[in-house]
Design a binder for these strands. Structure first.
Length: 156
DNA sequence: GCCAACGTTGGC
DNA sequence: GCCAACGTTGGC
């Protein structure tokens, strides 16, 4: 059964336009350093799952594109790169701690902004809207996925 | 830049 | 295993 996810990216690092410009419109989702988010990738995601591409820590946070999970979870190489801000000296190559999946942008959309999401009665329980939410990857209910695509005028 | 919320670390 | 201190996230 296909599942749905919301994945945050800081546009200053990887924006939806950056992802679109990449080969196959696909980027490795590097830098997840939270166990819960990692476990979603490792245990929850399957190739083909739907992804809402979300811009965070920017002037206008919101959903800016529709994407899909394009690979299974595999080792995030940046954890072993001493020049990377995501380097984790505690992670050993024989037992990598951090994983990533590849994410392929299906289409860029208008920015469905955070205030707009908050104002939608159908989305009150969307996890990313919950107070104190900091998880960079959250599961999305099918009903929420449908409501968001409808708002964006995107057909399934 | 502020600050609330949350996760992680480390002393005990 | 508790919990205070600290670091990070992310909206504003």
């Amino acid at each position: 059964m296909k599942k749905f996810w919301l994945m945050k990216s800081e546009p200053g690092e990887v924006s939806v336009d950056d992802a679109l410009a990449a080969p196959q419109s696909t980027v490795p989702w590097t830098g997840v350093r939270n166990y819960q988010a990692r476990n979603f990738m490792r245990d929850g995601m399957e190739v083909g799952d739907g992804v809402l591409f979300y811009h965070s820590s920017c002037a206008e946070p919101g959903i800016v594109g529709i994407a899909r999970v394009a690979s299974g979870a595999h080792t995030d190489p940046t954890q072993f790169d001493p020049d990377s801000p995501y380097c984790d000296p505690a992670s050993k190559p024989e037992a990598p701690r951090w994983l990533l999946v590849d994410v392929q942008v299906v289409q860029k959309t208008r920015n469905l902004t955070l205030p707009e999401l908050r104002a939608d009665a159908d989305l009150q329980d969307l996890l990313v809207l919950k107070k104190g939410n900091r998880l960079s990857i959250t599961p999305v209910e099918p009903a929420h996925w449908k409501a968001i695509l409808r708002r964006l005028g995107v057909s399934n």
